[in-house]
Amino acid sequence: MKSLLSYLLAGLVFAVSSWVVHAAELQVAAAADLKFAMDEIVEAFRKIYPDDKIDVIYGSSGKFHAQIQQGAPFDLYFSADIAFPRKLEQQGFSVGPTRSYAVGRIVLWSNVRDASQMTLADLADPAIRKIAIANPHHAPYGKRAEEALRSAGLWERLQAKLVQGENIAQTAQFVQTGNAEVGIIALSLALNPVLAAAGGYHLIDDKLHEPLEQGFIITKRAGNNPLASAFADFISSQESRAIMIRYGFALPDENAAQ
């Protein structure tokens, strides 16, 4: 009887201690263009907080926006378009202001021809039958792709060739599987080792489109989650900034960002 009690007690102590050690959990919703950069940032962050549970869910910025409005359990929301978190901030879904964390770039990418030697005008080449872009209706990278093609005077001519990915990762996947010869994707994806090994890219002049300013918020539910603000601070650390730069993001100026 006594031993049973001690077992129960030991179990209880174990349960409590594991609960105390596992005090913090973090769910991060991140735009698909962040996939590879954010994986590395989270890995670095985990080294500082090895006992905490950090999950990142990648998807489209618009979908996360709607889900957070409906009470989705995300503590931080990294959008590819700063307009989405700003909207949530105005509606009272955030703690503190929307912070700018990066400016994205779009590139031409292909694994069947040398995209580094291509320009936008080459897209009219009849040998290119399908061009993948992200959905210009709601995906930030798709909107910028449309703007760039319009500025280059190609939008109308290319209509019959365009296929739309639901988000920028699916857009890259349409090219990777050979179903489109060329795609307009995020530089951050073109720079990841798997895609970089498969093909080169051509950086699209950012004067042809509005800037892809990206922003994040801490959501209201994370108001008293210290890990959320720790992660938010970590994003502007030298370590994170170095990773973001490696993936081709331009960073907001540290002093001017505020």
Partner: peptide, 26 residues
């Protein structure tokens, strides 16, 4: 459809995908 459609109006943009796009675009 979402995986092989490419969301082309009149070709592959069916109602279920159109609903999804409306929701994504708020």
């Amino acid at each position: 459809v979402l995986m092989i459609g490419g969301n082309i109006p009149g070709q592959t943009r069916v109602v279920s995908v159109q609903i999804y796009d409306h929701v994504e675009a708020l």
